[in-house]
Design a binder for these strands. Structure first.
Lengths: 341, 341
DNA sequence: CTGAAAGCGCTTACAG
DNA sequence: CTGAAAGCGCTTACAG
């Protein structure tokens, strides 16, 4: 038999009203005597208020739903860490869902999480499906949520963005300034987060320097280690470049392997730049030159905006913009007359 | 105003009993007419039953608490994926907590999760704190939980173990058979999951082959990439070995960098073996020889045992044992007369 | 085939 | 300083 507030009342000889008030530190002052009596019984019985009963009267699940495309993705696990750290401090716990990049699963989880009375949702999504439609149904008009979608779904507030274009442009500029003219790029394929800004910046930067992009230079694949590996094999088979700009660090890690298998050396034969600035990239050999963006900071910002929204004025979310930083390390070399140094 | 079952009843001209029964597919047969009437109103109003009210009457939170020492750890994120995949299929969602290796936080989260009425807990813990005491308090006597603790906390059932000893022994034997005599090991320091079986197997294997372990060969640090890097620097500074057995893959990744910085080559100058068999190890250069253990499988097993426990006979958990597999790849070379090939 | 009523375990006006 | 009672939104015997 579960211990209820009634038992506590009976055992300590007071009313349930008193027990409730004492436990919640509410109401008028109680005699110290009464308080102690109640507290003693509570301690002895190890009474814990029933979560559901409590929430039915006073809905505060203190729970946030988080949906990511892949829990094991190095970038997202960092984002989750950022979310979790901030949220736990505020007394929230996260319900975590892995959408496996599927928009169907996403929709299913959004609905599932709402049914579970989460107070808000952080949805990291590569999809531009009609999320707003999904979320803005009637009673959920003002339901608090934050999208981590790289701006795919246009909206006024709650955009957490990174200066991706600037970061990518800077990286490619760096390569060009070092003498590179034949620069490849590993991009996402359709199953994953779009990296359009990075691709556009890459194209524009080459154009701005009067370099004509040859289409074989751009290869798309999964934005994973394996995808980077496969894309690199494909790229090296049909063209030769002196540098490779990778859509993200995971692809760069795969690229390292692909380049090695092609019998080439980094950076002597080919320079490589990644994107994300994952901790691991500093330990690769050679250490990876990469465009850093604050994964944990992004997670924290999402959590912060969401909590502010829950506590106060919804729908009126601020936008947040993060700068990137080019981390220059060992994977890039100078090119003079086609020879790397 | 939230739509309630009362509204549905009023709008469709039936009683709330009928609405409830129709929605839950329960009770005696209703006229198809009534069913359709109710369903129509439910659809129009987008009515969703209140989570708390529903659970108060009929507690089935369909929620499992999961606590891990570090969400971003490559091994644990795979374990979480295994848990999540199995559980979602069964209609459960996970409340995820990151204990950051702290036993205090662990205790706090266990309590927090129970207060949130999770139906069970999977606790991945490096600690041998009095968890049973924590969990076996009165009303929680039969509370379902599974520990992922490498057998640190002795108990009869629900042990999910890997043949770590055998896996480590095989790895070290492999090195010895290839001619290695000076074999170092990177072990965990006190802040992390113990890898005692791996260390013991290493020691015993050397002893069995009449090789006296020199203490400087064993260096402890965090079981992370950085820890592996630092440990390797320390080890290479005070001794020279022809092979290095790393407590886990992350340490091995750090070791790669430490070895490179010491001006040595893998495997020509020094052979390296890891432990875990993370996907990434296949893409390192050279690809890492490592002792594979099924991270996702471990997560799935934990989830499976837990759900069985929730559904049926608690406390009577089966044990589960996983074999390891030595993945022989490029990071190990033969040694003859002190020279590697 | 359908409904009135009790009850789940809390919190919160309200009264004294 | 403290308690009786209403009510949160459901489900489930029970009755008809």
């Amino acid at each position: 038999m579960k211990t209820t507030i009634k038992d506590i009342a009976r055992l300590s000889g007071v009313s349930i009203t008193t027990v409730s008030q004492v436990l919640n530190g509410k109401g008028k002052r109680f005699s110290e005597d009464t308080r102690q009596k109640v507290l003693k019984v509570v301690a002895e019985t190890e009474y814990r208020p029933d979560y559901f009963a409590k929430n039915m009267v006073n809905p505060q699940s203190k729970t946030i739903g988080v949906i990511v495309p892949d829990i094991t993705d190095l970038f997202f696990s960092k984002v989750i860490e950022g979310i979790e750290t901030y949220l736990n401090e505020k007394g929230y716990v996260i319900l975590l869902c892995d959408s496996h990049h599927s928009d169907e699963k996403e929709a299913h989880y959004v609905s599932e999480l709402m049914d579970r009375a989460v107070e808000g949702i952080i949805l990291a999504t590569p999809n531009s499906i009609a999320l707003d439609k999904l979320l803005d149904v009637k009673q959920y008009q003002s339901f608090p949520y934050v999208l981590l979608d790289r701006g795919i779904n246009k909206r006024d507030g709650g955009n957490i963005l990174v200066d991706e274009y600037a970061g990518a442009y800077e990286a490619v500029t760096y390569l060009i300034e070092l003498g590179h003219r034949r620069i490849g790029m590993l991009a996402n394929d359709s199953r994953f987060y779009k990296m359009d800004e990075r691709t556009e910046a890459y194209r524009q930067c080459l154009a701005d320097h009067q370099i004509a992009v040859e289409e074989p230079w751009i290869v798309s694949n999964a934005v994973t280690i394996e995808g980077g590996y496969l894309a690199t094999k494909e790229l090296l088979a049909k063209t030769n470049v002196s540098a490779l700009f990778c859509g993200n660090d995971q692809m760069a890690i795969g690229a390292y392997r692909g380049i090695f298998e092609a019998g080439l050396k980094i950076p002597e034969d080919i320079s490589v730049i990644g994107y994300d600035g994952l901790d691991i990239t500093n330990y690769l050999t050679p250490s990876l030159t990469t465009v850093y963006q604050p994964a944990a900071g992004i997670g924290q910002a999402a959590a912060e905006i969401l909590v502010d929204g829950i506590l106060g004025n919804h729908r009126n979310y601020p936008n947040k913009n993060f700068p990137t930083k080019l981390l220059k390390r060992e994977s890039v070399a100078v090119v003079l007359d086609g020879i790397s140094f």
